[in-house]
Amino acid sequence: MALLEAKNLSISFGGLRAVDEFNISIEKGQLYGLIGPNGAGKTTVFNLLTGVYKPTEGIVTLNGIDITAKKTIDLNKAGIARTFQNIRLFKDLSVLDNVKAALHNHYVYSTFDGIFRTPKFRKCEKAMNERAMELLKVFDLDEKADILASNLPYGKQRKLEIARALATEPKILLLDEPAAGMNPNETLELMETIRFIRDKFDMTILLIEHDMKLVSGICEELTVLNFGRILTKGKTSEVLNNPEVIKAYLGDE
């Protein structure tokens, strides 16, 4: 059974059908890519899967459970975590606190515990610190735990956002254009990181990307969107050599 499955997912904004009959089926442990030219509806699909928009038609299931049109916060609890195209960090919190904020639902103590610093508070905070530092270490950010998130260089902010998403212990990780604004070297490093996450955390990853090098380098399967509809899907090498796809990206001769 597929981990994440969407059937006939559609959404209309007024008269515009932004996504039409979108189908996807992602197996556990897969590195799946969603590509398409500008305005094809990729981010809209992401927003449908993460509860930002409610679909007009269609259903989404996670592990066979219907999660269609649930709220973002419930979807996160169900096991979907995401990053954003334009980085959204908690910029006035420290790097460590960014990750600790994401551990919110995994290490729980009450407001009373927090104000009166009960033993439960100490125990929980200690465990949180350890877990957060462990995650930061994976992304080579542990040396920077103390500084404000907004003071990190761009590439590291991307990594912190991924670390934060992973801290919520998701079943599937959705990355929205992780390589946007990166230079070729940073992109290369990011590829390594994404592959590493998949292997180390046994994670299922769905990513939207423009950068063809990144997509062809790490994705096993692709779905190509154009004008809100699926153009084609299949193994990466086959899809990228499909004349329809090349036409959609480069236009007619």
Binding site: F84, F90, R164
Partner: peptide, 24 residues
């Protein structure tokens, strides 16, 4: 504390806070 972090996370970025499961 945990609550303070959640409150400040919402202040800094409401959408991101929601995406990591914080009740706004």
């Amino acid at each position: 504390s945990r609550d303070g972090r959640a409150i400040m996370a919402i202040r800094d970025n409401r959408i991101a806070a929601e995406s990591i499961g914080i009740n706004i």
